[in-house]
């Protein structure tokens, strides 16, 4: 095992690379340090999941990549490389050009990305504006084919309808259709199934997986639902209170978690527990305030195995496997023991 202060250097071919990102939200009572030294890679044609409780900064990370941050957000360190180019050094016109062409996004509430007063048809044709070669007719045909593909019955006649004429599940399918119509290199999905019933959730997950394979795009899948992430993703990053505490392949994370937080999170998922029990496991304590984050480990107040060092020093990223790393002092102890 190698002690390594920086993010593990993986293949140089990663589609998206987030390096050492630090982000503050300015608020009347001070800066909220919402992302701290976040590093993450999304290799081409892979599905990377981000899991964590609400408030852990998953959406903020997704919005930073999309370039859709609110006005009070400020990135103070780090870089984001997309297809080899640093997004922060790019003129804003070039960034807009990437959005909706190479990068697209779907949201928890489909209504936020659909315009309620325009028909699905005009929205789906408009979204292809980067495409100068196809005629309007061809674009419409592509839109209908895509709606068919995502499982909208009778798309020929329904394409003229407005968003409110569809059910919640249908709207999310339409959003997926719109996001994938432009054949992006990377699709960012922020909790796309959170508002849906389990029956619809599994349908949407299957759909995303199938479409991802067909189109060959990469997906950054944000969710707090462990089951969905386990089923869909190839790689997983676990976030807690603004930090990526552990990342690795989906099997690394679900079968061999290294960080106490990951373990705790997995253990308290009621979906895991088959036998009837009156006391489900929980994570005692609250998520810490991000208003003045000190130097120690961010999880120490709730960690069952915290010790002195956790209060004094922020854990660096330790490599555990070829693609598996975590930020926890226990890993350096273990290293000593095994050495």
């Amino acid at each position: 095992m190698r002690r390594d202060g920086t993010a593990p250097q993986m293949s140089s071919l990663s589609l998206l690379e987030v390096r050492g990102l630090d982000l503050y939200f300015g608020t009347p009572s001070g800066g909220v340090h919402a992302l701290r030294n976040v590093s993450l890679e999304v290799p081409a044609a892979q599905i990377v999941g981000i899991v964590g409780e609400s408030g852990s900064g998953k959406s903020t990370l997704a919005y930073t990549v999309m370039g859709l941050l609110p006005e009070n957000a400020e990135v103070t360190a780090g870089a984001i490389f997309f297809e080899g180019r640093n997004l922060f050094n790019m003129p804003s016109s070039a960034r807009r050009g990437i959005r909706g062409d190479r990068l697209s996004m779907i949201f928890q509430d489909p209504m936020t990305s659909l315009n309620p007063v325009r028909s699905i048809e005009s929205q789906m044709i408009d979204i292809q504006h980067h495409d100068r070669l196809r005629s309007r007719r061809e674009k419409r045909a592509r839109a209908i084919a895509m709606l068919q593909r995502v499982g909208i019955p009778d798309p020929d006649s329904r394409i003229g309808d407005y968003p409110h004429q569809f059910s919640g599940g249908m709207r999310q399918r339409i959003c997926i259709a719109m996001a994938l119509l432009v054949e992006p290199a990377l699709l960012i999905a922020d909790e796309p199934t959170t508002a849906l019933d389990a029956t619809l959730e599994v349908q949407i997950i299957r759909l995303l997986k199938d479409l991802q394979e067909e189109i060959g795009c990469a997906v950054l899948f944000v969710s707090h639902h462990l089951g969905a992430v386990a089923e869909l993703c190839d790689r997983v990053a676990v976030m807690y209170a603004g930090e990526v505490v552990e990342q690795g392949t989906v099997r690394d994370i679900f079968h061999n978690p290294a960080h106490p937080y990951t373990r705790a999170l997995l253990e308290c998922d009621p979906g895991r527990i088959r036998k009837r029990t009156r006391t489900l496991p929980t994570i005692p304590g609250d998520v810490p305030s991000l208003l003045g984050v000190d130097g120690g480990c961010i999880f120490r107040q709730r960690c069952p195995s915290a010790f002195d060092r956790c209060r004094q020093e922020k854990p660096v990223e330790y490599r555990i496997g070829p693609e598996h790393s975590a930020r926890c002092h226990l890993l350096s102890e273990e290293q000593k023991v095994s050495a």
Binding site: V202, Q203, H225, G227, V250, F254, H255, D269
Partner: peptide, 24 residues
């Protein structure tokens, strides 16, 4: 039966005998 099977498993290797319910 279909409702019970429409459940994701927090395990990437889970064998999901899912019974899909058609449509909405």
């Amino acid at each position: 039966q279909a409702l019970l099977s429409a459940n994701t498993e927090p395990d990437p290797d889970a064998v999901l005998n899912r019974i899909e319910i058609k449509g909405e």
